[in-house]
């Protein structure tokens, strides 16, 4: 059970996240939606402490996350995997080594530094890649893969961490429509098949509705909506997205202006 209590993050005198309180039960697939700049990313990064919150607390199964330091913090990050918008893989290393990064906290240091992983670790990594049909790419450099493939490698890396919680920060923002479906299916798979709790930032309302069982809407650092996808009304969506709401909900092309002020067209 993830509990966020009165979390706030200030950059200068602007609040990126303002007094957010949230509870997520295990096994849920939560979609966090809102415009860019609404604070979704900051909130997620406060959970695995890539950014530290200014005030407030985060608890996982009763244990305080916000006060962790050193080795314990590393151990928490290992249990709380993150998937990034730009994949954040090491381009020049091969795919398998990238996935093995997820085993860093389960392996003695000397093995990691000399790149001499146990066959068990390699087996786990290969199996994780096979889950997403990319085991054949294991020896290729990560930078040679397409966006969709790279994101699947990132998800495999997250999987081998054997995490309890998976945070996905705009996982499909850099992908084309076909790969979007592939990656969202992968996230759904790890949620349903392995029972992992998934928190995902999404800017596409349609995707959030179809994949998530709970939606949390943020605007200007605050939570303005929290409920099932079917409860998201037009009015609520408008509050989240402002005037762009109509574009997000009903993609009709805008009609040409009434007046023609350009002489040539008269």
């Amino acid at each position: 059970m993830l509990e966020i209590k009165a979390l706030s993050k200030k950059f200068g005198d602007k609040f990126a996240v303002a007094n957010v309180t949230l509870s997520v039960r295990e096994g849920a697939f939560v979609g966090i939606i809102g415009r860019s700049g609404a604070g979704k990313s900051t909130l997620l990064r406060a959970i695995n402490r890539l950014n530290d919150a200014s005030t407030g607390h985060v608890f996982w199964k009763g244990e305080s996350i916000t006060s962790l330091k050193g080795q314990k913090l590393g151990a928490w990050r290992s249990r709380c995997a993150m998937i990034f918008q730009q994949f954040n893989l090491v381009g020049r290393l091969d795919v398998l080594t990238n996935v093995l990064m997820g085993r860093l906290n389960h392996t003695p240091s000397w093995r990691a530094l000399t790149n001499l992983w146990t066959s068990h670790d390699r087996a786990i990594a290969l199996s994780a890649l096979a889950q997403f049909d990319i085991a054949a790419l294991a020896s290729q450099r990560a930078e040679e893969l397409s966006g969709g493939q790279q994101q699947r490698v990132a998800i495999a890396r997250a999987l081998v961490q054997e995490p309890e919680l998976v945070l996905a920060d705009e996982p499909i923002a850099s992908l084309d429509p076909r790969n979007t479906k592939v990656v969202m299916d992968a996230l759904q798979r790890i949620n349903r098949h392995f029972g992992l709790t998934v928190l995902s930032n999404l800017h596409s309302l349609d995707l959030a509705r179809s994949y998530c069982d709970r939606l949390v809407g943020m605007a200007q650092g605050r939570v303005v909506f929290d409920g099932a996808p079917r409860e998201l009304t037009d009015a609520a969506a408008r509050e989240l997205y402002g005037i762009e709401a109509s574009e997000v909900l009903a993609p009709e092309p805008a009609s040409a202006p009434e007046h023609n002020s350009v002489p040539a067209l008269a």
Binding site: L50, G74, R77, V90, T97, M101, L104, N105, R157
Partner: peptide, 27 residues
């Protein structure tokens, strides 16, 4: 970005150096 990726798995500074920084700057 690669550094963040490796840090997010819970790695120590030395691991980050060995896997995220060195391979990227080698060329």
């Amino acid at each position: 970005k690669p550094v963040e990726g490796v840090v997010s798995t819970g790695a120590h500074r030395l691991h980050t150096l060995r896997f995220a920084i060195l391979p990227e700057v080698a060329p």
